[in-house]
Design a protein around this nucleic acid. Structure first.
Length: 430
RNA sequence: GGGGAGAUACUCAAGCGGCCAACGAGGACGGACUGUAACUCCGUUGACUACGUCUUCGCAGGUUCGAAUCCUGCUCUCCCCA
Protein backbone atom coordinates (compact mmCIF):
# COMPACT_ATOMS: atom_id res chain seq x y z
CA UNK A 1 0.00 0.00 0.00
CA UNK A 2 1.51 3.27 -1.14
CA UNK A 3 1.51 6.04 1.43
CA UNK A 4 -1.19 8.43 0.26
CA UNK A 5 -0.46 11.10 2.84
CA UNK A 6 3.24 11.22 1.95
CA UNK A 7 2.29 11.42 -1.71
CA UNK A 8 0.08 14.44 -1.04
CA UNK A 9 2.71 16.03 1.15
CA UNK A 10 5.49 16.24 -1.37
CA UNK A 11 3.04 17.40 -4.01
CA UNK A 12 1.95 20.26 -1.81
CA UNK A 13 -1.59 18.95 -1.84
CA UNK A 14 -2.00 18.38 1.87
CA UNK A 15 -3.40 21.24 3.87
CA UNK A 16 -4.64 19.42 6.91
CA UNK A 17 -5.71 15.99 8.02
CA UNK A 18 -7.14 14.52 11.17
CA UNK A 19 -4.74 12.80 13.53
CA UNK A 20 -4.00 9.13 12.77
CA UNK A 21 -5.34 9.41 9.23
CA UNK A 22 -2.05 8.13 7.89
CA UNK A 23 -2.12 5.01 10.08
CA UNK A 24 -5.73 4.44 9.15
CA UNK A 25 -4.84 4.48 5.47
CA UNK A 26 -1.80 2.28 5.77
CA UNK A 27 -3.73 -0.50 7.47
CA UNK A 28 -5.69 -1.62 4.42
CA UNK A 29 -7.79 -0.41 1.52
CA UNK A 30 -10.00 2.48 2.53
CA UNK A 31 -12.71 4.46 0.79
CA UNK A 32 -12.69 8.24 0.58
CA UNK A 33 -15.06 10.61 -1.11
CA UNK A 34 -15.09 14.10 -2.53
CA UNK A 35 -18.17 16.12 -3.38
CA UNK A 36 -18.82 17.75 -6.75
CA UNK A 37 -21.40 20.32 -7.56
CA UNK A 38 -23.72 19.22 -10.38
CA UNK A 39 -25.13 22.64 -11.22
CA UNK A 40 -23.48 22.44 -14.62
CA UNK A 41 -22.91 19.66 -17.12
CA UNK A 42 -19.18 20.16 -16.98
CA UNK A 43 -16.50 20.39 -14.36
CA UNK A 44 -13.90 23.12 -14.58
CA UNK A 45 -10.25 23.16 -13.67
CA UNK A 46 -11.07 24.39 -10.21
CA UNK A 47 -12.45 20.89 -9.69
CA UNK A 48 -9.21 19.40 -10.86
CA UNK A 49 -7.58 19.42 -7.44
CA UNK A 50 -10.23 17.28 -5.76
CA UNK A 51 -10.24 15.07 -8.84
CA UNK A 52 -6.51 14.58 -8.50
CA UNK A 53 -6.97 13.81 -4.82
CA UNK A 54 -9.26 10.96 -5.76
CA UNK A 55 -7.01 9.85 -8.60
CA UNK A 56 -3.93 9.65 -6.38
CA UNK A 57 -6.05 7.95 -3.77
CA UNK A 58 -6.97 5.26 -6.25
CA UNK A 59 -3.39 4.94 -7.44
CA UNK A 60 -2.36 4.33 -3.89
CA UNK A 61 -4.65 1.35 -3.85
CA UNK A 62 -7.69 2.84 -2.18
CA UNK A 63 -11.21 3.19 -3.41
CA UNK A 64 -12.37 6.66 -4.50
CA UNK A 65 -15.98 7.74 -4.33
CA UNK A 66 -17.18 10.72 -6.27
CA UNK A 67 -20.20 12.27 -4.67
CA UNK A 68 -22.43 14.33 -6.90
CA UNK A 69 -24.12 16.88 -4.71
CA UNK A 70 -27.58 16.80 -6.22
CA UNK A 71 -29.14 17.65 -2.89
CA UNK A 72 -26.47 19.91 -1.44
CA UNK A 73 -26.13 21.71 -4.75
CA UNK A 74 -29.67 22.91 -4.30
CA UNK A 75 -28.85 24.62 -1.05
CA UNK A 76 -25.58 26.43 -1.54
CA UNK A 77 -22.58 26.33 0.71
CA UNK A 78 -22.44 29.45 2.85
CA UNK A 79 -18.67 29.26 3.13
CA UNK A 80 -18.41 30.49 -0.44
CA UNK A 81 -19.72 34.01 -0.85
CA UNK A 82 -22.17 32.62 -3.33
CA UNK A 83 -25.77 33.35 -2.65
CA UNK A 84 -28.47 30.76 -2.71
CA UNK A 85 -28.48 28.48 -5.70
CA UNK A 86 -31.31 27.54 -7.95
CA UNK A 87 -33.06 24.29 -7.75
CA UNK A 88 -32.28 21.84 -10.50
CA UNK A 89 -34.98 19.67 -11.88
CA UNK A 90 -34.26 15.99 -11.73
CA UNK A 91 -33.71 15.49 -15.49
CA UNK A 92 -31.04 18.16 -15.58
CA UNK A 93 -29.48 16.75 -12.47
CA UNK A 94 -29.22 13.26 -14.00
CA UNK A 95 -27.90 14.63 -17.25
CA UNK A 96 -25.23 16.63 -15.46
CA UNK A 97 -24.35 13.67 -13.30
CA UNK A 98 -23.64 11.52 -16.35
CA UNK A 99 -21.61 14.27 -17.99
CA UNK A 100 -19.53 14.70 -14.85
CA UNK A 101 -19.02 10.97 -14.60
CA UNK A 102 -17.75 10.96 -18.16
CA UNK A 103 -15.20 13.60 -17.31
CA UNK A 104 -14.14 11.90 -14.12
CA UNK A 105 -13.60 8.64 -15.94
CA UNK A 106 -10.57 10.19 -17.63
CA UNK A 107 -8.94 10.28 -14.22
CA UNK A 108 -10.60 7.51 -12.30
CA UNK A 109 -11.19 3.90 -13.12
CA UNK A 110 -14.91 3.23 -12.72
CA UNK A 111 -15.13 0.10 -14.79
CA UNK A 112 -12.54 -2.46 -13.70
CA UNK A 113 -13.39 -5.39 -11.41
CA UNK A 114 -10.65 -4.37 -9.04
CA UNK A 115 -11.74 -3.95 -5.46
CA UNK A 116 -10.79 -0.29 -5.59
CA UNK A 117 -12.82 0.63 -8.66
CA UNK A 118 -14.21 4.14 -8.37
CA UNK A 119 -17.83 4.68 -7.48
CA UNK A 120 -20.14 7.56 -8.26
CA UNK A 121 -23.02 8.38 -5.96
CA UNK A 122 -25.52 11.18 -5.79
CA UNK A 123 -26.76 12.44 -2.48
CA UNK A 124 -30.05 13.38 -4.09
CA UNK A 125 -30.80 9.64 -4.12
CA UNK A 126 -30.83 9.36 -0.38
CA UNK A 127 -31.97 12.87 0.44
CA UNK A 128 -34.99 13.10 -1.84
CA UNK A 129 -37.19 10.76 0.19
CA UNK A 130 -35.91 11.94 3.52
CA UNK A 131 -38.74 13.89 5.09
CA UNK A 132 -38.06 17.05 7.00
CA UNK A 133 -39.42 15.54 10.21
CA UNK A 134 -37.29 12.44 9.85
CA UNK A 135 -34.24 14.52 9.16
CA UNK A 136 -34.55 16.82 12.13
CA UNK A 137 -35.37 13.90 14.37
CA UNK A 138 -32.71 11.43 13.23
CA UNK A 139 -29.93 13.78 12.22
CA UNK A 140 -30.61 17.19 13.66
CA UNK A 141 -30.88 16.09 17.23
CA UNK A 142 -27.30 14.84 17.25
CA UNK A 143 -25.76 18.18 16.44
CA UNK A 144 -26.22 21.25 18.57
CA UNK A 145 -26.86 24.65 17.16
CA UNK A 146 -24.00 25.91 19.27
CA UNK A 147 -21.70 23.55 17.42
CA UNK A 148 -22.97 24.67 14.06
CA UNK A 149 -22.77 28.33 14.98
CA UNK A 150 -19.13 27.95 15.94
CA UNK A 151 -18.10 27.19 12.35
CA UNK A 152 -16.30 30.00 10.60
CA UNK A 153 -18.54 29.71 7.57
CA UNK A 154 -21.52 30.49 9.75
CA UNK A 155 -19.85 33.00 12.04
CA UNK A 156 -18.74 35.10 9.11
CA UNK A 157 -22.22 35.31 7.77
CA UNK A 158 -23.82 36.14 11.08
CA UNK A 159 -21.26 38.68 12.23
CA UNK A 160 -22.15 42.33 12.08
CA UNK A 161 -19.59 42.99 9.33
CA UNK A 162 -21.51 40.73 7.00
CA UNK A 163 -23.85 42.67 4.74
CA UNK A 164 -26.02 39.72 3.96
CA UNK A 165 -27.81 37.59 6.42
CA UNK A 166 -28.01 33.87 6.11
CA UNK A 167 -31.12 31.93 5.41
CA UNK A 168 -32.12 28.90 7.40
CA UNK A 169 -31.60 26.84 4.27
CA UNK A 170 -27.96 27.80 4.04
CA UNK A 171 -27.52 27.29 7.75
CA UNK A 172 -28.74 23.74 7.27
CA UNK A 173 -26.14 23.07 4.61
CA UNK A 174 -23.41 21.74 6.85
CA UNK A 175 -25.81 19.32 8.45
CA UNK A 176 -26.94 17.98 5.07
CA UNK A 177 -23.36 17.64 3.92
CA UNK A 178 -22.45 16.10 7.25
CA UNK A 179 -25.19 13.58 6.82
CA UNK A 180 -23.72 12.57 3.47
CA UNK A 181 -20.62 11.47 5.30
CA UNK A 182 -22.66 9.49 7.80
CA UNK A 183 -24.64 7.87 5.02
CA UNK A 184 -21.56 6.90 3.03
CA UNK A 185 -19.89 5.72 6.22
CA UNK A 186 -22.77 3.42 6.96
CA UNK A 187 -23.61 2.27 3.44
CA UNK A 188 -20.47 2.59 1.33
CA UNK A 189 -17.82 1.95 3.90
CA UNK A 190 -16.38 5.42 3.37
CA UNK A 191 -14.26 6.52 6.30
CA UNK A 192 -12.62 9.61 4.84
CA UNK A 193 -13.88 12.80 3.29
CA UNK A 194 -11.55 14.98 1.26
CA UNK A 195 -11.99 18.46 -0.10
CA UNK A 196 -10.60 21.97 -0.30
CA UNK A 197 -9.42 23.56 2.91
CA UNK A 198 -12.58 25.68 2.92
CA UNK A 199 -14.49 22.46 3.48
CA UNK A 200 -12.84 21.63 6.76
CA UNK A 201 -15.74 22.87 8.82
CA UNK A 202 -18.31 20.96 6.82
CA UNK A 203 -16.26 17.78 6.89
CA UNK A 204 -15.80 17.87 10.64
CA UNK A 205 -19.54 18.23 11.10
CA UNK A 206 -19.69 14.90 9.28
CA UNK A 207 -17.12 13.21 11.48
CA UNK A 208 -18.85 14.62 14.53
CA UNK A 209 -22.14 13.16 13.34
CA UNK A 210 -20.53 9.77 12.74
CA UNK A 211 -19.11 9.81 16.23
CA UNK A 212 -22.31 10.85 17.94
CA UNK A 213 -24.67 8.61 16.05
CA UNK A 214 -22.81 5.35 16.26
CA UNK A 215 -19.51 6.00 17.94
CA UNK A 216 -17.70 5.57 14.61
CA UNK A 217 -14.66 7.40 13.41
CA UNK A 218 -14.46 9.42 10.24
CA UNK A 219 -11.35 11.06 8.89
CA UNK A 220 -10.78 14.29 7.02
CA UNK A 221 -8.15 15.34 4.51
CA UNK A 222 -8.10 18.77 2.96
CA UNK A 223 -5.94 20.27 0.27
CA UNK A 224 -4.87 23.89 0.02
CA UNK A 225 -6.85 26.15 -2.25
CA UNK A 226 -4.91 26.85 -5.40
CA UNK A 227 -3.66 30.38 -5.67
CA UNK A 228 -1.86 32.25 -8.37
CA UNK A 229 1.25 34.29 -7.76
CA UNK A 230 -0.33 37.40 -9.27
CA UNK A 231 -3.27 37.16 -6.92
CA UNK A 232 -5.91 36.57 -9.58
CA UNK A 233 -8.25 33.69 -9.19
CA UNK A 234 -7.10 30.29 -10.32
CA UNK A 235 -9.15 28.74 -13.09
CA UNK A 236 -10.52 31.91 -14.58
CA UNK A 237 -9.47 33.37 -17.87
CA UNK A 238 -10.90 36.40 -19.66
CA UNK A 239 -13.67 34.18 -20.93
CA UNK A 240 -14.64 33.02 -17.45
CA UNK A 241 -14.15 29.52 -16.12
CA UNK A 242 -11.79 27.14 -17.82
CA UNK A 243 -13.98 24.10 -18.36
CA UNK A 244 -13.08 20.49 -18.92
CA UNK A 245 -15.74 20.24 -21.61
CA UNK A 246 -14.26 20.90 -25.06
CA UNK A 247 -17.48 22.58 -26.14
CA UNK A 248 -17.14 25.18 -23.43
CA UNK A 249 -13.40 25.66 -23.45
CA UNK A 250 -11.66 24.48 -26.58
CA UNK A 251 -8.67 22.17 -26.08
CA UNK A 252 -6.53 24.93 -27.55
CA UNK A 253 -7.61 27.46 -24.94
CA UNK A 254 -7.34 24.81 -22.27
CA UNK A 255 -3.76 24.10 -23.26
CA UNK A 256 -3.00 27.80 -23.43
CA UNK A 257 -4.24 28.32 -19.90
CA UNK A 258 -1.52 26.05 -18.57
CA UNK A 259 1.09 27.36 -20.92
CA UNK A 260 0.53 30.88 -19.64
CA UNK A 261 1.14 29.96 -16.02
CA UNK A 262 3.90 31.93 -14.33
CA UNK A 263 7.15 30.14 -13.52
CA UNK A 264 6.38 30.26 -9.85
CA UNK A 265 2.93 28.76 -10.28
CA UNK A 266 4.15 26.18 -12.76
CA UNK A 267 6.43 24.61 -10.15
CA UNK A 268 3.42 24.03 -7.94
CA UNK A 269 1.04 23.07 -10.69
CA UNK A 270 3.20 20.33 -12.13
CA UNK A 271 3.12 18.55 -8.79
CA UNK A 272 -0.57 18.98 -8.35
CA UNK A 273 -1.98 18.43 -11.81
CA UNK A 274 0.22 15.70 -13.24
CA UNK A 275 0.99 12.16 -12.15
CA UNK A 276 4.70 12.56 -12.86
CA UNK A 277 6.88 11.21 -10.06
CA UNK A 278 9.11 13.27 -7.85
CA UNK A 279 12.40 12.55 -9.64
CA UNK A 280 10.98 13.54 -13.02
CA UNK A 281 9.52 16.73 -11.64
CA UNK A 282 12.63 17.73 -9.73
CA UNK A 283 14.71 17.20 -12.84
CA UNK A 284 12.31 19.28 -14.89
CA UNK A 285 12.37 22.11 -12.40
CA UNK A 286 16.16 22.19 -12.44
CA UNK A 287 16.18 22.15 -16.21
CA UNK A 288 13.56 24.85 -16.37
CA UNK A 289 15.63 27.15 -14.19
CA UNK A 290 18.56 26.88 -16.56
CA UNK A 291 16.54 27.80 -19.62
CA UNK A 292 13.45 29.54 -18.34
CA UNK A 293 12.53 31.05 -21.68
CA UNK A 294 11.78 27.61 -23.08
CA UNK A 295 9.09 27.15 -20.46
CA UNK A 296 9.54 23.44 -20.18
CA UNK A 297 7.41 23.25 -17.06
CA UNK A 298 4.44 25.02 -18.57
CA UNK A 299 4.63 22.93 -21.70
CA UNK A 300 4.84 19.71 -19.74
CA UNK A 301 1.88 20.62 -17.57
CA UNK A 302 -0.11 21.62 -20.62
CA UNK A 303 0.78 18.37 -22.32
CA UNK A 304 -0.04 16.12 -19.40
CA UNK A 305 -3.28 17.75 -18.44
CA UNK A 306 -4.54 18.25 -21.99
CA UNK A 307 -3.77 14.64 -22.87
CA UNK A 308 -5.61 13.48 -19.79
CA UNK A 309 -8.67 15.62 -20.33
CA UNK A 310 -8.95 15.84 -24.11
CA UNK A 311 -6.82 13.06 -25.57
CA UNK A 312 -3.99 12.86 -28.07
CA UNK A 313 -5.66 14.28 -31.18
CA UNK A 314 -6.91 17.36 -29.36
CA UNK A 315 -3.53 17.91 -27.76
CA UNK A 316 -1.76 17.80 -31.10
CA UNK A 317 -4.22 20.23 -32.57
CA UNK A 318 -3.68 22.54 -29.67
CA UNK A 319 0.07 22.47 -30.30
CA UNK A 320 -0.47 23.12 -33.98
CA UNK A 321 -2.81 25.97 -33.22
CA UNK A 322 -0.35 27.44 -30.75
CA UNK A 323 2.45 27.35 -33.29
CA UNK A 324 0.35 29.08 -35.88
CA UNK A 325 -0.87 31.75 -33.53
CA UNK A 326 2.36 32.42 -31.69
CA UNK A 327 5.08 31.05 -33.90
CA UNK A 328 6.39 33.07 -36.77
CA UNK A 329 3.71 31.99 -39.14
CA UNK A 330 3.01 33.89 -42.33
CA UNK A 331 0.14 34.31 -44.71
CA UNK A 332 1.36 31.38 -46.77
CA UNK A 333 1.44 29.12 -43.70
CA UNK A 334 -2.14 30.03 -43.04
CA UNK A 335 -3.17 29.41 -46.59
CA UNK A 336 -1.55 26.00 -46.55
CA UNK A 337 -3.95 24.80 -43.87
CA UNK A 338 -6.93 22.75 -44.84
CA UNK A 339 -10.25 24.21 -43.87
CA UNK A 340 -10.93 21.86 -40.99
CA UNK A 341 -7.61 22.51 -39.26
CA UNK A 342 -8.02 26.20 -39.84
CA UNK A 343 -11.43 26.13 -38.17
CA UNK A 344 -10.08 24.08 -35.28
CA UNK A 345 -7.31 26.56 -34.73
CA UNK A 346 -9.67 29.49 -34.72
CA UNK A 347 -12.42 27.74 -32.90
CA UNK A 348 -14.14 30.19 -30.64
CA UNK A 349 -12.69 33.24 -32.34
CA UNK A 350 -15.48 35.75 -32.89
CA UNK A 351 -16.50 36.08 -36.48
CA UNK A 352 -18.96 37.60 -38.86
CA UNK A 353 -19.98 37.17 -42.44
CA UNK A 354 -19.50 39.54 -45.34
CA UNK A 355 -20.76 39.17 -48.88
CA UNK A 356 -18.40 37.88 -51.52
CA UNK A 357 -19.14 40.90 -53.66
CA UNK A 358 -17.71 43.18 -50.98
CA UNK A 359 -14.41 41.39 -51.16
CA UNK A 360 -14.39 41.23 -54.93
CA UNK A 361 -14.77 44.99 -55.02
CA UNK A 362 -11.99 45.38 -52.50
CA UNK A 363 -12.98 45.81 -48.86
CA UNK A 364 -11.35 48.76 -47.12
CA UNK A 365 -9.93 48.29 -43.63
CA UNK A 366 -12.41 50.53 -41.83
CA UNK A 367 -15.21 48.47 -43.27
CA UNK A 368 -13.55 45.18 -42.41
CA UNK A 369 -12.76 46.21 -38.84
CA UNK A 370 -15.82 48.12 -37.81
CA UNK A 371 -18.38 49.32 -40.32
CA UNK A 372 -19.24 45.91 -41.76
CA UNK A 373 -18.36 43.83 -38.70
CA UNK A 374 -18.28 44.38 -34.99
CA UNK A 375 -14.68 43.48 -34.35
CA UNK A 376 -13.94 46.99 -33.12
CA UNK A 377 -16.52 49.20 -31.50
CA UNK A 378 -16.41 52.13 -33.86
CA UNK A 379 -14.86 53.44 -37.04
CA UNK A 380 -12.86 55.81 -34.90
CA UNK A 381 -11.37 52.94 -32.97
CA UNK A 382 -10.56 51.17 -36.22
CA UNK A 383 -8.74 54.25 -37.51
CA UNK A 384 -6.87 54.56 -34.25
CA UNK A 385 -5.82 50.92 -34.25
CA UNK A 386 -4.59 51.23 -37.81
CA UNK A 387 -2.61 54.32 -36.89
CA UNK A 388 -1.09 52.39 -34.01
CA UNK A 389 0.17 49.74 -36.38
CA UNK A 390 -1.89 47.20 -34.47
CA UNK A 391 -3.83 45.56 -37.26
CA UNK A 392 -2.81 42.49 -39.21
CA UNK A 393 -4.58 40.72 -42.01
CA UNK A 394 -3.60 37.06 -42.25
CA UNK A 395 -0.72 37.64 -39.83
CA UNK A 396 0.75 40.52 -41.82
CA UNK A 397 0.67 44.10 -40.60
CA UNK A 398 -1.38 46.42 -42.74
CA UNK A 399 -1.85 50.18 -43.03
CA UNK A 400 -5.01 52.19 -43.33
CA UNK A 401 -4.91 52.16 -47.13
CA UNK A 402 -4.95 48.37 -47.38
CA UNK A 403 -7.92 46.74 -49.08
CA UNK A 404 -8.91 43.12 -48.75
CA UNK A 405 -9.29 41.37 -52.07
CA UNK A 406 -9.92 37.84 -53.30
CA UNK A 407 -6.23 36.99 -53.06
CA UNK A 408 -6.40 37.32 -49.30
CA UNK A 409 -8.96 34.58 -48.82
CA UNK A 410 -7.91 31.47 -46.93
CA UNK A 411 -9.60 28.29 -48.13
CA UNK A 412 -11.57 30.62 -50.39
CA UNK A 413 -13.76 31.91 -47.63
CA UNK A 414 -11.87 33.22 -44.60
CA UNK A 415 -9.89 36.30 -43.79
CA UNK A 416 -8.04 36.44 -40.49
CA UNK A 417 -8.08 39.85 -38.84
CA UNK A 418 -5.93 40.55 -35.84
CA UNK A 419 -5.50 43.42 -33.46
CA UNK A 420 -2.32 43.27 -31.51
CA UNK A 421 -0.91 39.89 -30.71
CA UNK A 422 -3.74 38.08 -29.15
CA UNK A 423 -7.02 39.43 -30.43
CA UNK A 424 -8.31 37.61 -33.46
CA UNK A 425 -11.40 38.00 -35.57
CA UNK A 426 -12.52 35.83 -38.41
CA UNK A 427 -14.19 37.21 -41.49
CA UNK A 428 -16.29 34.60 -43.24
CA UNK A 429 -17.03 35.39 -46.84
CA UNK A 430 -20.24 33.96 -48.22
C1' G B 1 -37.76 63.90 12.09
C1' G B 2 -33.43 67.88 12.24
C1' G B 3 -28.60 69.37 10.13
C1' G B 4 -24.57 68.77 6.60
C1' A B 5 -21.90 66.83 2.17
C1' G B 6 -22.15 64.95 -2.54
C1' A B 7 -23.58 62.75 -7.72
C1' U B 8 -18.07 64.25 -13.59
C1' A B 9 -16.04 59.21 -18.77
C1' C B 10 -14.44 51.71 -17.11
C1' U B 11 -12.88 53.09 -11.70
C1' C B 12 -10.90 56.84 -8.43
C1' A B 13 -10.62 61.93 -8.93
C1' A B 14 -9.76 67.43 -10.61
C1' G B 15 -12.53 71.36 -12.75
C1' C B 16 -16.72 75.69 -9.90
C1' G B 17 -19.31 81.03 -16.24
C1' G B 18 -15.99 81.17 -21.92
C1' C B 19 -8.83 78.95 -22.73
C1' C B 20 -13.44 71.81 -21.51
C1' A B 21 -14.35 66.17 -25.13
C1' A B 22 -13.16 68.02 -19.79
C1' C B 23 -6.12 67.92 -15.34
C1' G B 24 -4.25 63.63 -12.96
C1' A B 25 -4.01 58.39 -11.29
C1' G B 26 -5.42 53.41 -11.97
C1' G B 27 -7.33 50.02 -15.40
C1' A B 28 -7.86 48.52 -20.40
C1' C B 29 -5.92 48.36 -25.30
C1' G B 30 -1.84 49.05 -28.77
C1' G B 31 3.71 49.73 -30.04
C1' A B 32 9.13 48.70 -28.72
C1' C B 33 11.50 45.07 -25.66
C1' U B 34 10.67 39.84 -24.13
C1' G B 35 9.84 33.71 -22.85
C1' U B 36 2.70 33.83 -26.04
C1' A B 37 6.04 36.41 -19.34
C1' A B 38 7.48 40.10 -15.70
C1' C B 39 9.87 44.81 -15.68
C1' U B 40 10.68 49.32 -18.38
C1' C B 41 9.73 52.96 -22.14
C1' C B 42 6.18 55.17 -25.71
C1' G B 43 1.21 55.87 -27.51
C1' U B 44 -4.34 55.45 -27.50
C1' U B 45 -8.73 55.55 -24.40
C1' G B 46 -17.01 59.86 -26.61
C1' A B 47 -18.80 59.56 -31.80
C1' C B 48 -18.70 60.94 -36.87
C1' U B 49 -19.21 61.97 -43.51
C1' A B 50 -12.44 63.85 -38.98
C1' C B 51 -7.25 70.15 -39.48
C1' G B 52 -14.01 70.36 -38.96
C1' U B 53 -18.83 68.83 -36.85
C1' C B 54 -22.03 66.48 -33.27
C1' U B 55 -23.42 64.37 -28.40
C1' U B 56 -21.59 64.03 -23.18
C1' C B 57 -20.32 65.97 -16.54
C1' G B 58 -27.33 62.21 -11.84
C1' C B 59 -32.62 63.72 -14.21
C1' A B 60 -35.92 67.83 -15.84
C1' G B 61 -36.46 72.80 -16.46
C1' G B 62 -34.42 78.00 -16.12
C1' U B 63 -30.80 82.40 -16.15
C1' U B 64 -26.95 83.86 -19.88
C1' C B 65 -24.34 85.87 -26.17
C1' G B 66 -22.16 81.46 -23.75
C1' A B 67 -23.10 76.44 -18.32
C1' A B 68 -19.85 70.42 -16.08
C1' U B 69 -19.60 75.24 -13.59
C1' C B 70 -25.16 79.90 -11.52
C1' C B 71 -30.79 79.19 -10.13
C1' U B 72 -35.35 75.93 -9.30
C1' G B 73 -37.52 71.23 -8.81
C1' C B 74 -36.80 65.90 -8.77
C1' U B 75 -34.11 61.18 -7.95
C1' C B 76 -30.29 58.79 -5.49
C1' U B 77 -25.89 58.30 -2.11
C1' C B 78 -23.09 59.38 2.22
C1' C B 79 -22.21 61.67 7.13
C1' C B 80 -23.77 63.86 11.92
C1' C B 81 -27.78 64.59 15.65
C1' A B 82 -32.63 62.54 17.43
Amino acid sequence: MKNFIKELQWRGMLHDSMPTTEEHLMERMRSAYVGFDPTSDSLHIGNLVPIMLLAHFQRCGHRPIALVGGATGMIGDPSGKSSERNLLDENTLRYNQEAIKGQLSHFLDFTSDAANAAVLVNNYDWMKDFSFLEFIRDVGKHISVNYMMAKDSVKNRISSESKEGMSFTEFTYQLVQGYDFLHLYQNNNASIQMGGSDQWGNITTGTELIRRVGGGKGYAITCPLITKSDGTKFGKSEGGNVWLDAKRTSPYKFYQYWLNASDEDAENYIKIFTFLDKETIDALIVEHKEVPHLRLLQKKIGEEVTLLVHGTAAYENAIKASNILFGKSTASDLKSLDEQTFLDVFDGVPQSTVALSEVENGLDMIGALAAKTNFLASNGEARRALKENAISVNKEKVKEDFTISKEDLIANKYVLLQRGKKTYYLLVVA
